[in-house]
């Protein structure tokens, strides 16, 4: 696999992160957030070492970077010192997304990005993904909500029972067709 023309050896998460790949996992609480830590530490979890000088943390710079993301993404309450556990699902998800925007990412992997997220925050997440893709980053969204994928994606793959049963531009397929494909797949 290549990121920006550089070959990435598989198997190392930290090397992948260094190469500019970010992941928002499906299980926000068990895989994404350090729930008892403040929001800003969650936002800078992949990047705090880059703010640090000779191993010493620069929390002021981290807070500033986190505040920037909080304003950008409209995380509420806009308080980077608040413990992540106290945020709503949608705001936790936005903070997780913000994590990968601090230093920018080239490839963003989103696994069920809107699970447990309220309608308003959903729309913001869609818009954010769109702007991110427009800026040149590759965004890979995995979702079981069909309209979400078709609405957001440029290119859609339909996967049924572990096999890709369709690939093509997202406009050329609609929800019925996706469901048909999935049903065919499981029938065969």
């Amino acid at each position: 696999m290549k990121v920006d023309g550089k070959v990435l050896r598989p198997g190392s998460v930290s090397r992948a992160v260094d190469a500019g790949i970010g992941l928002c996992p499906e299980e926000r609480k068990s895989q994404g957030l350090v729930l008892d830590e403040p929001v800003f530490k969650n936002i800078t979890l992949p990047t705090f070492a880059r703010f640090a000088k000779a191993g010493f943390l620069d929390e002021a710079a981290e807070r500033a970077a986190a505040d920037e993301q909080i304003v950008n993404l409209d995380v509420r309450p806009a308080d980077s010192g608040r413990v992540a556990r106290t945020l709503s699902g949608g705001n936790q998800q936005k903070a997780l997304l913000g994590r990968w925007l601090v230093r920018g990412c080239r490839v963003l992997l989103l696994d069920e990005p809107t699970r447990g997220v309220d309608v308003g925050a959903r729309a913001e997440i869609y818009a954010l993904v769109r702007t991110l893709a427009d800026s040149g980053a590759a965004v890979l969204v995995v979702s079981s909500e069909i309209d979400e994928v078709l609405g957001m994606a440029d290119h859609a793959l339909v996967i049924s029972e572990g096999r890709v049963v369709h690939r093509g531009p997202a406009q050329e397929i609609d929800e019925h067709r996706v469901l048909d494909l999935v049903m065919e797949g499981s029938a065969a």
Partner: peptide
């Protein structure tokens, strides 16, 4: 780009909400 148009939903929920609470960023913890 078809599908869900984010702009319509987000207009009400996001725009003017400045972040006034940045100062008191160290509460209970």
């Amino acid at each position: 780009h078809g599908g869900l148009p984010p702009a319509t939903v987000s207009a009400g929920s996001t725009d003017n909400d400045p972040a006034p609470h940045v100062k008191d960023a160290k509460p209970g913890l």
